[in-house]
Amino acid sequence: MSQAKETRRRKSVEAQTAPNRATATIEAIIEAAERLWGAHGIEGASLREISIAAGSANKSSIGYHFGDKQGLIRAIFEARIPALEDRRRPLLAAAEAEGKLDDPITLLRIAFLPVFEEVDRHGRHSFAAFLRAINRFAQWDGRTGIQQLAPLASAAFNILRQKVSHMPQDLVEARLRLANEICYGAITDQDDNPPATGPDPVLATKMFEDALAASAHLMLLG
């Protein structure tokens, strides 16, 4: 094979593999950010630390692919939410068919059960931990966009808001934030068990159901 042909062949192979490398880098950064921010809070892990954890030799890779911290946060939501919404669709349809859309626990289950079922490749609820961190991160400016990305979860919460519309709005929103904290805390409760024992699925499910009941009671308090 001539040198010119070999050069063309090599460039063709590089052109075909470059998108795959970029996709792998993006996925690795998203996974690392979700894990580190979930464990340490949004302010507890820098973009540089995330880049290192993702195995990226290029320190500017996050800026190149996501722009900034807010862009990376949005990318995590965009990567995870569609699958959660797919799981919420039959839950919402079943609740409507059974006439349970006025039941606070049912509405909260529609919102949180898919998050409870979502685990990473290590069997941990890293996305729930990330959501808990976001719930505490006042500087996050993309909440409206996320509501648009997750219309079914938003619908469940809006129905719940309507049930308590007689209460002051700031009280309702404060209780919803606390309900998020309770449910995400319950979802991640078993993740820190020693590796030898691992999560107890029976206890994890009981904790989750208790969190739904406690949150529903909280929302309906006078």
Score class of each variant (00 low, 15 high):
220 L>E: 13
52 I>P: 02
22 A>V: 11
75 A>C: 04
183 C>I: 15
221 L>E: 06
14 E>I: 08
183 C>F: 01
64 Y>F: 12
215 S>W: 02
183 C>T: 14
219 M>W: 00
187 I>H: 08
175 R>Y: 10
209 E>D: 05
191 D>C: 12
170 D>M: 11
95 A>M: 07
56 S>V: 00
220 L>C: 07
212 L>I: 01
28 A>L: 13
32 A>D: 03
154 S>K: 01
52 I>A: 05
12 S>C: 01
161 R>P: 00
177 R>T: 12
5 K>S: 09
204 A>V: 14
104 P>H: 04
201 P>H: 13
68 D>R: 05
80 R>Q: 14
39 A>D: 09
115 V>H: 00
16 Q>P: 02
2 S>N: 15
76 I>G: 02
215 S>K: 01
193 N>E: 15
60 S>I: 02
192 D>E: 15
133 A>V: 10
167 M>T: 07
40 H>W: 14
204 A>N: 13
101 L>E: 04
37 W>H: 10
58 N>K: 09
14 E>A: 14
66 F>Y: 12
150 A>H: 03
15 A>F: 09
93 A>T: 13
33 A>D: 09
2 S>Q: 04
162 Q>W: 10
120 D>K: 02
14 E>V: 05
27 E>H: 15
50 I>C: 03
202 V>T: 15
173 E>D: 12
207 M>Y: 15
60 S>W: 08
205 T>H: 15
185 G>Q: 05
69 K>T: 06
49 E>G: 04
151 P>C: 01
196 A>T: 14
210 D>L: 06
41 G>R: 05
177 R>P: 00
133 A>H: 08
14 E>L: 10
79 A>P: 05
35 R>T: 12
92 L>V: 04
171 L>I: 14
142 G>C: 07
125 H>Y: 12
5 K>W: 12
